[in-house]
Structures are given as C-alpha cells and as structure tokens.
Amino acid sequence: MRNVRRWMCAAAVPVVVLAGGVGLTGTAAALPDTGSVILPAGTDEAVTFESGGTVFHGSLRTPDVPATGAALLLPGSGPTDRNGNQTGVAADTLLRTADALAARGVASLRFDKIGAGATGLGTYTPETIGDYGFTEQVDHAAAAAELLAVRTGVGTADILVLGHSEGALTTLALADRGIGGGFALLQPLPMRYLDLLTVQFTALADSGQLGPDADAVRADLPRAVESLRTSGTVPTDLHPVLAQLGLNAANAKFLSEADRLDPPELAQRLAVDTQVLLTCSDKDTQVSCDQVEPLRAALAHTDLRFEHFRTANHALEELGPLPSSPVDTVALFPVSAEFAAAIDGWAAARG
C-alpha cells in the first residue's frame, strides 16, 4: 500500500450513501477494558454501509441510559481505524471518547476509513489510491452523519461532530456544509495542512533525526509545497526522504485539496454561539498550543470551551511527569485525566 499519512496521527474513510436504505449488521460486542480512567460504557453494534461500491465497517455506540444526543467521531491522518489506532500505534482515542460520551447518554458512530481496519482499501488499489482526496473524505463523513441520523433520530444539523487531529479539519469542513450543531476540535490541525507539515518536517531535520539528508530535505520542502499548491502534484525529482514522509504522488491529491482549507477561516464562519470544545496540550509534540492560538481566536464568537492540557500527548494519553517520546506512540498509555474531565464536562453540558 502507499506510504499513507502517519505524521499527525489518524486517517480518513469513504462512507454511506443512504439512497434506498443502508445495509446494517448488528452484533453486540463486549467492550474492552483499555486501562483508562474513562470506564467502558454502552454497547457497540457493528454496522456496515456502502458508498461508491465499498462496504465500510463501523461501530454504533448505544448508551446504557436514555440517549440525549448523537455524535460522529472522526480520526486524524493515516490508516487510523475506528478506535483511533494504526498498526503498531496504540491510542484508543476514539474508543475512549465513545466511552465518555456514552456515560453521559450520547450515542456515537465511529468507523474504519479507507486503508484502515475491516474497510481496507475498498474499491481502491495501491495503484489507484492516489485518486482518493480530502473532498472524498468530507463526502464520506457527511454520509456517515446521515447514517447516524437515521439510526438515532437526531438530525444531521443537530448531531455533535468530534474530530481528532486531521479529523478536526474534516469536522470544520462538515460544519461549512451545515452538518453538526456542536463541535469538538481535539488536538486539531490548526493551520493550512502543508504549513503544518513544513513545520513538522523542518523540526525533524533540525533535531538530527534525518541525519545526512536534513539539508536536502530543507532545500526541497518549499519546492514540494509550491508544486502541490499550484499544480496538485509533487516534483518527480523530489528527495526520496520527503516521499517517504508522505509528500508523494499517492498523497498529492489529498494534500492539495486539504491544504486549500484554512482552519481559522472555517472557524470564523461558524454561527455565533455555536458550542465548540477546543483542546491543546503542552506535551503534544505534533501540534503546539501556540499553533492552536489563532484557531482559538477565530472561535471567539462561538460558545467556546477551551481546554489547555499540561500532561496529555497528541493522542490524549496521560504522560504525567514523563516527556513525550516514541514509546507513548507505540504503547497504550492510560487516557489523559485532563481530557477525561474535559470531555465528560462537555458531554454533560450537551445533555
């Protein structure tokens, strides 16, 4: 499979078209104990739905108490599954969020994107995955919102939409289409996509992690960004390390389309008093609180709940006194106590 986006933590997925009904399969599953301070709550029902010839797989969480709302949960970049995990990368970010919401009576839907979990590549192949773009990702999320509305009776204009990392950009794009009545932007992509990648890749070079290729990566990076923004392609002679990091032909359409959207501009278009939860953390090494600040300012006209965490990593795991490191990416750490309190309080206010 292509070198899919892994740098920000999560991914995207095609979803359902509800014409003529949706194929659903129901299998109640016992929920795993993640070792989280957020306890398992509610019951997952396995659901399948079709879009563009692909069958997508997800989990519809039903609370144990009468439902007070419904939420669509969207992951970040790369082949991240419905729970917020990738192969070799444990986080359970969305699974734990579903637990917290269910405890407050909020039903939720999460699903495996293209390239993730039971959905796999769907109708795409390693040779055609470059045809998958950010616009399709938003289309599929909109279809997922329709499925959630059908199953819960909560209209798409009234559901909650929660996006983690790259998923926050998808969330804002859905809001721009009139989908969602409340939003959570969790450790969000806070600026144009290629601007953030430039910051992240430059940091890799400056830290010595790219070794002797660092100078070549710094030199080629502006050329790659300019090409993606002007033509939607990457130069054929781009340094191979940049291709390995994701700036390659397979990702070009997705990156070009995603980069056209500026999160603060989308945030400014939200209606006055829209209920929004925005988070950042001092120990998030992928998105800093300073980078989130312009997005926070753009949300000043909304009913904003801003949570500045101190000990959570990008995946909203608890680090306590530990620094963020590759270990907390691979291992499943307990959920952030700060996030647990924040999501519980926000969900309680939505009930």
Score class of each variant (00 low, 15 high):
L319E: 14
L172Q: 01
G232E: 11
F339R: 02
G181H: 12
G246Y: 03
F111L: 09
D213H: 12
R110Y: 04
A157C: 01
S288F: 10
G88R: 07
A100N: 06
G153P: 03
N83A: 06
A341F: 06
L299N: 01
L221M: 12
G88K: 08
G182H: 08
E136N: 04
K253E: 02
P79C: 13
T274D: 10
Q275S: 14
L186A: 00
S256N: 03
L189P: 08
L60T: 01
G211T: 05
G76C: 06
V65L: 10
L197Y: 13
A41F: 03
Q137C: 13
D81P: 00
Q291E: 15
G84R: 07
T311N: 12
A173H: 00
K113H: 08
D282H: 13
D195L: 14
V154H: 14
T156F: 06
L169P: 01
V154P: 04
L277W: 04
G122S: 00
T285W: 12
I159S: 08
A252F: 06
L277Y: 10
N85F: 06
G345A: 11
L242F: 06
L39R: 09
A250F: 03
T80I: 05
I129A: 10
H57T: 07
R61E: 09
A10V: 08
A297R: 13
E338K: 11
N83Q: 10
T48K: 05
D303Q: 14
P66Q: 12
A349G: 15
F134N: 02
L319S: 07
L95Q: 14
T43C: 13
L238A: 14
N313R: 04
S256E: 06
F306V: 01
G246S: 11
S207A: 15
L121R: 13
L121G: 03
A41L: 09
L316K: 05
R6L: 12
A341C: 03
Q209N: 03
G130W: 01
Q86P: 01
P190S: 13
A168K: 00
G122Q: 02
G345R: 06
A149K: 03
E307D: 13
L147D: 00
A107L: 10
A342P: 11
A118P: 00
L31T: 10
C9G: 15
R350L: 14
V4M: 07
V89W: 12
W7F: 09
R110G: 11
C280Q: 04
V47G: 07
G182C: 11
A250Y: 02
A90R: 15
T54H: 06
E318W: 05
E146G: 14
A243K: 02
R296T: 05
P326E: 07
E50M: 00
T236L: 15
V89K: 08
A91C: 06
V15S: 07
T170F: 06
A145H: 07
I343T: 14
L295H: 02
T202R: 13
T329Q: 11
D81R: 02
D158G: 15
A144N: 03
A219G: 08
L261N: 01
E226I: 00
A243F: 01
A249W: 00
